[in-house]
Design a protein around this nucleic acid. Sequence first.
DNA 1: GGTTGACCTGAGAATGGTTGTCAATTCAGC
DNA 2: GCTGAATTGACAACCATTCTCAGGTCAACC
Lengths: 134, 134
Amino acid sequence: MTTTPARRVTKQRVAIADQLERSEAFLSAQDLHAALSRSGERIGLATVYRTLSAMATDGELDVRRTDDGEALYRRCDTEGHHHHMVCRTCGRTVEIGGPKLEEWLAEVSGRFGYVDIDHTVEITGTCPECAAKA
Amino acid sequence: MTTTPARRVTKQRVAIADQLERSEAFLSAQDLHAALSRSGERIGLATVYRTLSAMATDGELDVRRTDDGEALYRRCDTEGHHHHMVCRTCGRTVEIGGPKLEEWLAEVSGRFGYVDIDHTVEITGTCPECAAKA
DNA sequence: GGTTGACCTGAGAATGGTTGTCAATTCAGC
DNA sequence: GCTGAATTGACAACCATTCTCAGGTCAACC
Ligand SMILES: [Mn+2]
Ligand SMILES: [Mn+2]
Ligand SMILES: [Zn+2]
Ligand SMILES: [Zn+2]
């Protein structure tokens, strides 16, 4: 029985959640902090990091990692297990799931005797809009 | 026609390659440097980073990222496109590929009009040996 | 086996994202 | 309103990784 710590609704958290709500793409903590500063919100960088981390833990956000290790966050619209297909140009993201992938996983893991399987799938491509502009 | 820079065989690179050769698991640059120091090899940390990076670029190594962004390297036994199933306990890794996954990718990306698709799949589980010990 | 020069090394400084510190502030229940 | 735990933010600390550059080393060619 872990005592769940009380969660407060602060001006900062609302501002961060709003910003995430209106973004279709994945954003870094630094990105978000810069955007908030630009729009007049004066929020500490540490608070942004803390809030993003907490929201991710609560499943409200998806996390992704840049090739050089930077963490990117985006609101998660889908409940339950799923994956993402991200546009490498504009960041537009589609949430994806499907039994075919899971079947393949079960088959492959079974073949080698691996159990208690976890997996992450990252798909990157160019979205229709960006492809049209090219 | 980019002039390929000459590659030299130095004591340091041999030591690093050897260490990688005898490891079944993914290792970080720091891990590797520590292991080399322990076995008497006195190699600069910067050299380890440079060498791993170069080998990865040449396709001799696979790279993986920890959840907190640390880069892990392992010798790659397979030529061409493939994925990995890693034991979360001992690091033992199986190289995996298959048309079923690629078919699924083609179908999904096509459905949303995404083109020029790239993807990474990370599978984590418990290998038969480690499962037996549990 | 000696010369030569591009390549390579390593100690230390610098970088940059992220987390820790802690006094001051702010929610939220009473 | 009062009160205390939760939260904030300026700043320091962390830590993996990269940069710098003076000195060392490989390999080709005599
Ligand atoms: Mn999602
Ligand atoms: Mn491989
Ligand atoms: Zn796009
Ligand atoms: Zn194992």
